Amino acid sequence: MKVTAYERSVQGTGASRRLRNSGKTPGIIYGGTDLPQAVELDHNALFHALKKEAFHSSILDIEIGGKVTQALLRDFQMHPFKPLVLHIDFQRIDATHKVHVKVPLHFKGEDTCPAVKTGGGVINHITNEIEIECLPASLPEFIEVDLSAMVVGQTLHAKDLTLGAGVALSLHVEHENPAIVVARMPAVSGGDVPTGAPEAPAAPTATKLKDKEGKE
């Protein structure tokens, strides 16, 4: 994806506020052998780009003054309640060095798997992204997760994922092997009474007790 940015010469809180008031977003590009570079981007274009899944996990071509720098989105700050991007961070990449990045998981086969179709179960999604490491050229936009064979009681872990060539789980993910999805039976409310269950006998009322005592 291509991003257009402009060099930002004036920095500071006041300068950033004026920049935002003019429809721009301050940012920074860091990493690699070059010094960190302060930049500014068109806010509306950036706001819409952040809504795209690929913008968060793809290598971005950032053009600054005719020069293109490849980078990854690393962080951004939003206003607490306004649709306003306050600041954004990018990290430069090197084609010869591996990157560590979280990529989204795309699930398929959930509605037709045995757990749901014949087992009456539900699929519980524990996470929708996973951290991987790979060379920039091997970075996938997403990882597809096939759930079509899942049965009730089965748990799919990180090591069960099928990764592309040259792609591996990050070391801590490999070590922890967290659960991705679980096929389970839906929870039953404690107040529900199974069909056909005998009803508890009603407690005698005060009137009935009085009548009974009067007859004795």
Results as ranks from 00 to 15, higher is better:
Lys2Glu: 12
Ser9Cys: 09
Ser9Ala: 14
Val10Ala: 08
Gln11Asn: 14
Gly12Phe: 06
Thr13Glu: 14
Gly14Met: 14
Arg17Thr: 13
Arg18Gln: 11
Leu19Phe: 10
Arg20Asn: 01
Lys24Pro: 03
Pro26Gly: 06
Gly27Gln: 05
Gly27Trp: 05
Gly32Ile: 08
Thr33Ile: 07
Gln37Met: 09
Gln37Ser: 03
Glu40Gly: 01
Leu41Trp: 08
Asp42Gln: 02
Ala45Phe: 03
Leu46Asn: 13
Phe47Ala: 11
Phe47Thr: 02
His48Thr: 12
His48Gln: 12
His48Arg: 07
Lys52Phe: 02
Phe55Asp: 00
His56Ile: 08
Ile59Thr: 15
Leu60Met: 01
Gly65Cys: 03
Gly65Gln: 03
Gly66Leu: 12
Lys67Asn: 12
Lys67Met: 13
Lys67Val: 15
Val68Ala: 14
Thr69Ala: 11
Gln70Val: 02
Gln70Pro: 10
Asp75Thr: 12
Asp75Trp: 10
Met78His: 07
His79Met: 07
Phe81Glu: 05
Lys82Asp: 13
Pro83Thr: 07
Val85Arg: 01
His87Glu: 02
Phe90His: 03
Phe90Arg: 02
Phe90Thr: 01
Ile93Cys: 02
Ile93Tyr: 03
Asp94Ser: 14
Thr96Cys: 04
Lys102Asn: 11
Phe107Glu: 10
Phe107Cys: 08
Lys108Glu: 12
Glu110Pro: 07
Asp111His: 14
Thr112Pro: 12
Pro114Trp: 13
Pro114Gly: 04
Gly121Tyr: 04
Val122Ser: 07
Val122Ile: 14
Ile126Asp: 09
Glu129Gln: 13
Glu129Lys: 13
Leu135Val: 06
Leu135Cys: 11
Pro136Asp: 12
Leu139Ala: 00
Glu141Thr: 14
Phe142Tyr: 15
Ile143Leu: 12
Ile143Lys: 06
Glu144Val: 15
Val145Thr: 00
Ala149Lys: 14
Met150Thr: 08
Asp160Trp: 10
Leu161Gln: 05
Leu161Asn: 10
Leu161Arg: 04
Ala165Arg: 11
Val167Trp: 08
Leu169Thr: 13
Ser170Val: 07
His172Asn: 14
His175Asp: 12
Asn177Trp: 11
Ile180Asp: 01
Val181Pro: 05
Gly191Arg: 12
Val193Ala: 10
Thr195Ile: 11
Gly196Val: 09
Gly196Arg: 05
Glu199Ala: 15
Ala202Val: 13
Ala203Met: 11
Ala206Gly: 09
Lys210Gly: 05
Lys212Asp: 09
Gly214Pro: 06
Glu216Tyr: 09
